[in-house]
């Protein structure tokens, strides 16, 4: 963020600056409040089941234990499988999505292209009106037969009209001379696109790519509708099932009496395992998000 927050205001004279102090206090409180839920879940995952039954969820674990994690790791098949699915869907989806969207966006950014205007409208209209859940559902299941197929987690999100238009706007902002020069040199559209336009567009591509990856990683909706095989469940769908059915994750138990299955803490431990990577990635990639929001022309 430091790159985005350049000091532009004149320095004010040094005197006790209580308004600024108040601002700091407010912001600090806010920051704590925003992160608190994460801490609560983290703490619960390290609590013993007995402690949760006694004291409920709390910010500091009563009776610190890693039992819930050991319990989950005792039979990690389900979770590892879900991770495999999510990683595959996210990687393939994001790469394919960037490729097809940027190619289309490039053609829409080429002023000489005769179909430019009608196709731009074609993309735009898809954003304004949608048939809704029911027709899509019937079409995907009855006509495309994509139920319980990994592709159903990827294909529907491949092209987002909004991202296409965003990329087009970015391509339009590139200096025209460079592309013209390339064409004078005899470079075809494909070469211009891959060798000149794409390398110049890394900021936009990074941003759109990250947002797309986030969409794929966080998606449970497509899984909820179209996947009913547990070995095809992505992480988020697994989490969704576990919140009401702990059996989904943990069919193994180290004790004979299921009464001692640590339901609450295991649930929270799985949640932590599922959000861990995204929180870790967050610190590396957040500036791209920020840039994306700024590039996006502030439209939601």
């Amino acid at each position: 963020m430091a790159t985005d927050i350049r000091p532009v205001r004149r320095a004010t004279p040094a005197r006790p600056d209580w308004p600024r102090l108040v601002a700091h206090v407010l912001l600090a409180l806010c920051a704590v409040a925003f992160v608190a839920p994460l801490l609560l879940v983290l703490s619960a995952s390290f609590s013993s089941e007995h402690a949760i039954d006694q004291h409920g969820y709390s910010f500091l674990p009563h009776g610190f234990t890693t039992f819930a994690y050991r319990y989950v790791i005792g039979d990690p098949t389900q979770i590892i499988q879900a991770y495999g699915i999510s990683i595959f869907v996210t990687v393939v989806g994001t790469v394919a999505s960037l490729l097809v969207m940027s190619m289309l966006a490039y053609t829409l950014a080429r002023r000489e292209y005769v179909l430019r205007a009608p196709l731009a409208f074609y993309v735009l209209f898809a954003m304004l009106f949608n048939g809704g859940l029911v027709p899509s559902y019937i079409f995907i299941t009855q006509y495309l037969h994509l139920r319980n197929n990994l592709m159903v987690l990827i294909l529907p999100y491949l092209v987002s009209p909004w991202f296409v238009l965003l990329l087009r706007t970015y391509f339009l902002s590139l200096p025209v001379d460079i592309m013209d020069a390339a064409r004078v040199d005899g470079a075809g559209e494909l070469r211009t696109f891959f060798q000149i336009v794409l390398p110049l567009s890394t900021p936009a591509l990074a941003t759109v790519g990250l947002l797309t990856a986030l969409i794929y990683w966080n998606d449970w909706w497509l899984g909820l509708l179209y996947i009913d095989k547990s070995d095809l469940s992505p992480v988020q769908l697994l989490l969704y099932h576990i919140i009401s059915n702990i059996n989904f994750a943990a069919s193994n138990s180290q004790t004979d009496n299921l009464a001692s299955v640590p339901v609450q803490s295991v649930r929270m431990a799985i949640a932590v395992l599922a959000i861990g990577p995204i929180v870790a990635a967050f610190f590396f990639v957040q500036r791209y998000f920020v840039r994306g929001i700024t590039i996006g022309g502030l439209k939601d």
Binding site: I73, I80, Q81, G84
Partner: peptide, 24 residues
């Protein structure tokens, strides 16, 4: 644990390859 996960990942990797084949 590491062994299990590696095997499972391999297994998923295989599946992923298969799916990638479909995409291709």
């Amino acid at each position: 644990m590491t062994q299990i996960s590696r095997r499972s990942l391999l297994f998923n990797g295989g599946k992923a390859l298969l799916a990638a084949g479909t995409l291709g």
